[in-house]
Amino acid sequence: MIRKEPRLYYRVFVWSGTLRLFHWTLAFSTFILVLTGIYIHYPPITTKWAEFKPQYIMATLRYWHFCAGYFFICALLVRFYLFFAGNQYERPTDFLPINKRNLQSLVHNIKFYLYLTDEHECRMGHTILAGTIYFILFICGVIMGLTGLYLLYPETPMVARMGHDLFGTPQQARLIHYLLNWFFIFFIMVHLYIAIWNDFKAPDAIISGAFSGSKMMPADLECPIEELEKIPFEK
């Protein structure tokens, strides 16, 4: 397939500052949570039996884990708020496969990722595949937050009741917390790869968009023009 070159692109503003704040808070807190979490789960020996110097390492890393956990929970709260109060691309109706248009887009997405088509669908918001995975990640994040709070405050009556009703004993919550951790690691790997891959394959410049909040959209027929016109252009 031969692409029409040169093509005219507009820089359009998609992601609000709040969403980007959510994204990077979640990204950094997840990064710290995963690293410290792996240490907490399987602490490698750092003392060599000699007790060379006091290090207080488990206590320190646990403290970082809890701090990062609070940032993580705050990020999720922000995202939850944006589900209702965000711009049209930040609401679940835009990126979940709940109508015919989105379902078609999802099928197209999957084909694109499987190299079955070279035709990139220029969408203003998340692609449907990405949006669905992000939504699942959000649910997993909520479960992580709740199991985490249960493990941190098992003796606070309200938290204990919540945790006991939802997850059972702390040991069961701990297992869920641990298994979902691998989903997050899996997600980070795939997410980074797909973002880089898309930067090669597609013209929207999504990596810089994660900072600037804008996307590059072609001005010709392939993108939904009626949507494009509604968007205020940035420069």
Partner: peptide, 17 residues
């Protein structure tokens, strides 16, 4: 489970690339 998740993801990514 973790080994499988990470190993599997790495393998899939490598194959895809």
């Amino acid at each position: 489970i973790g080994e499988v998740a990470v190993g599997g993801a790495a393998a899939v990514i490598a194959a895809h690339a």
